[in-house]
Design a protein around this nucleic acid. Structure first.
Lengths: 259, 259
DNA sequence: CCATCTTTGTGCACGCGTTCACAAAGACAT
DNA sequence: ATGTCTTTGTGAACGCGTGCACAAAGATGG
């Protein structure tokens, strides 16, 4: 999963819990696959397995949307696809701009998953003048100067930031000022935005770090990985402000385990 | 934030809550930035602001690691950087393989955030024979046939999947069979893995769909967006199994709103 | 029309995560 | 030393999310 949330504090949107909203796209994908195989109906058990969740959770999630199932039978696939799409707002067209056409930006522009879900790449924007006019994924890259005009002309409300970290906040400010109210941020920075603007963050490095944590834990289950050769410099515990005597050569106090 | 979780059920890893682990990389990044500016100490309030979280939450998070602060002063930046790095397992070197060198895979290979955090790209793997040998981000792409050998020779335990959805499960199975126990999945599929293997999922399209949901909600606050022209075909509510008479030409029952 | 079987929808309890609010700890000045 | 001021670390309360378990609803067969 992508990570940084920044979900709305506790504002259950129209009674639908955030956690449920986050799972609807999962269900939708599984349902779409069933639809393509012309499967007419599906039980909560089957669909839950396909989406990788608990069937009770799935049923509760759907109960927030309404009673769309038939007891003894299951859910009508086509009907449910439509209902979830409508709930997620995918029955309308969402123009999206991608700012920062580096490796990642180009990958995003080429990503097929967008177009298939009601999202349309309205423009690709980059600060490098050398990029301007160059076609990426069949769309000519435009210069940052055009940003405001592009946003307003196309009625864009969703922006994707794929710039280096240093430029992200500035780009964000301009997007918001121009009218964008939802931002998907790939830059490794915390963006500050005014009230009413949604930010979701995808951070590749954070995901890896979380994996590393669990990996270390698995590996260190038996081997007490602690006294292994430390590749990085272990800094000393800052002295208790009593400057009179510094800790002797024993240094590196092993910082007692929490529990 | 990247999305699909698949966190371990309820196995609080060594007493540190999952939610806390997920935030540690955030703190680490903020601390690293402070460190580069040679800031010696930082208060929970300041650091929390930099990381975009609540200060009480931050203090509680740190309390799971130990008592690393000094009352009346704050936290020693260098010391905390080291402690968090160690906790996350970033003081050791993690060889990583990336499978699927398309647009996204190439972007990941070029992403600087990996190397700077103890992650080392050990190999790039692709199924296309035409890719074999071609250098991406300074590393020669290798063919899928070599996958098992690469994993075992380099002692790789973390794999990144950036293949098309159709190939993901197969690649996953081979990675796991070869000894990988942590997987970061960018393919839009639910991966099934044996017990003991961690999977984290990053799904670009899901993030956008969640944004669209909130965006629709904002837009539809006053305008009852419901009776606007529907671009997609609204399927009829499946008839109550009474096959005797099908709904006449009136068809399209507008599917009563849930609430 | 009745009985049986399947599957949904949900009331309820439990546990995790968040937040408040404050006592304890240490810095710093006098 | 003593007192004041700052900031941490945490006990406790609360709310959200999850999962169990079951009653109700409808299909299906006789």
């Amino acid at each position: 999963m992508a990570t940084g949330r920044t979900h709305r504090p506790a504002t259950r949107s129209r009674g639908i819990p955030e956690a449920t909203v986050a799972r609807l796209p999962l269900y939708l994908r599984a349902l779409t696959a069933l639809s393509e195989r012309s499967v007419p109906t599906v039980s909560s058990e089957e669909l839950a397995a396909a989406a990788g969740v608990n069937s009770a959770k799935l049923r509760k999630d759907f109960s927030y949307l309404g009673s769309y199932g038939t007891r003894g039978v299951g859910y009508d696939v086509e009907y449910l696809v439509y209902q979830i799409s409508r709930e997620l707002g995918l029955t309308q067209d969402w123009p999206v701009v991608i700012v920062g056409i580096g490796n990642l930006g180009a990958a995003l522009a080429n990503y097929g998953g967008f177009a298939s879900r009601g999202f349309r790449v309205a423009a690709l924007i980059d600060a490098d003048p050398a990029m301007a006019g160059k076609p990426v994924a069949g769309i000519a890259v435009q210069h940052t100067d055009e940003l405001e005009k592009i946003i307003t002309d196309n009625g864009v409300s969703i922006g994707v930031i794929a710039t280096p970290a240093g430029a992200a906040q500035q780009v964000c400010d301009r997007l918001v000022a121009a009218g964008v109210t939802s931002i998907l941020n790939f830059a490794p920075t915390v963006l500050s935005v005014p009230e009413g603007v949604d930010v979701r963050k995808v951070d590749l490095s954070i995901e890896l770090q979380i994996l590393a944590f669990h990996e270390q834990r698995k590996a260190g289950e038996e081997a007490s990985s602690q006294d292994a050769a430390q590749p990085v410099t272990p800094p000393v515990r800052p002295a208790p402000a009593d400057d009179s005597d510094r800790k002797g050569p024993d240094g590196d106090v092993p910082a007692v385990m929490p529990a």
